[in-house]
Amino acid sequence: MAVQVEIWTDINCPFCYLGKRRFEEALEAFPHRDAVSVVHRSFELDPALPRDHSDAVVPHIAEKYGISEAQAAANERGIGAQAEAVGLPYLTSGRDFGNSFDMHRLLHFALKQGKQERLLDALYAANFAEAEPLFGDAERLVRVAVSAGFDEAAVREVLADPEAYADAVRADEAEAARLGARGVPFFVLDRKYGVSGAQPSEVFAQALERAWSDHAPELEIVADGEACGPDGCALPQRD
């Protein structure tokens, strides 16, 4: 008996970074955690960006939401405080954003090798905790993957072929649309229960318990008759 959890994310998304940690906290405390399998699915926040695009996050947020750069910077500091609360490093200024399609292709490459979690964590750290720009730089992406334990030649081979794992990324995105995901992170348990957003760990714990309960339903007694138990046996009725 197992529970499958699928998590749609994008490397650009700070709430995906937070949501992953909060889900992990819930999973660590879950009594049946060894029976839970987790797979990460692809979702691009801005697929129309050119592959070599890289720009500063704060001005982008200000323009996208029609707020001042001071307000955008304050929002980043607020997210940084949330990250600190769960033990995650977070740079509140100087980060970049860009097209993440190649990163998602590499994550499918890593999934095939059984090391998807390792690469995802490395990409999150490179984006949210390290000052060096991440997007629009294939060499930077290679270094991140190699630092996570992947073979450099194999990584370069994937990046050199724009169609390698591209269908897998597109399939994930089509499935997200079919399931009604309008943003990320988006968690799906056994294709029955959905959790949207970087919810508190308690919410993820409740979702895990509910999914697990579906695998172990309460026994329904359909007939009840004479039987023996710890206190003895039911005596036959005499006329």
Rank of each mutant, 00 (worst) to 15 (best):
A2F: 05
Q4E: 06
E6Q: 14
D10E: 06
D10C: 03
D10W: 02
D10Y: 02
I11D: 05
P14D: 13
P14L: 07
F15C: 03
F15K: 00
C16G: 13
Y17G: 12
R21F: 00
F23E: 02
E24S: 14
E25R: 15
A26K: 03
F30I: 07
P31T: 09
H32C: 02
A35N: 06
V36M: 03
V38M: 04
L45R: 03
D46L: 06
D46G: 01
D46A: 12
P47Y: 09
L49S: 05
P50D: 07
P50R: 13
H53T: 03
H53M: 07
S54F: 00
S54Y: 00
A56G: 07
H60F: 11
E63C: 00
E63I: 00
Y65I: 00
I67P: 03
S68N: 13
E69C: 02
A72R: 06
A73E: 15
E76Q: 14
G78L: 04
A83K: 00
E84D: 15
E84L: 08
S93P: 05
G94M: 03
D96K: 07
G98K: 08
N99Q: 12
N99D: 01
S100D: 01
M103G: 13
L106F: 06
L106I: 10
L106W: 02
F109A: 08
F109I: 07
F109P: 10
A110G: 11
L111R: 15
K112I: 04
Q113P: 12
Q113F: 07
Q113C: 09
Q113D: 12
Q116G: 14
R118H: 08
L119T: 12
D121K: 11
A122Y: 00
L123C: 09
N127H: 14
N127V: 08
E132R: 15
D137P: 05
D137L: 01
E139K: 10
R140Q: 13
V144K: 01
A145C: 15
F150L: 12
D151W: 10
A153C: 09
R156H: 08
V158A: 06
V158K: 01
L159P: 01
A160E: 08
A160W: 07
D161F: 10
P162W: 12
A164S: 12
A166Y: 09
A168T: 12
V169F: 05
A171G: 03
E175Q: 15
E175L: 15
A176W: 04
R178C: 04
L179M: 14
L179W: 09
G180D: 11
G180L: 13
G180T: 15
A181L: 13
R182A: 14
R182K: 12
G183H: 05
V184L: 02
V188S: 02
V188F: 05
G194C: 11
G197A: 06
G197R: 04
A198H: 04
S201H: 03
E202Y: 01
E202F: 02
F204M: 03
F204Y: 14
L208P: 11
E209D: 15
A211H: 01
S213L: 05
A216M: 01
A216Q: 05
A216D: 08
L219T: 07
E220K: 11
E220N: 06
I221W: 14
D224G: 00
E226N: 05
C228W: 09
P230D: 08
P230M: 05
C233E: 09
L235E: 15
R238T: 13
R238P: 00
R238Q: 15
D239H: 14
D239M: 09
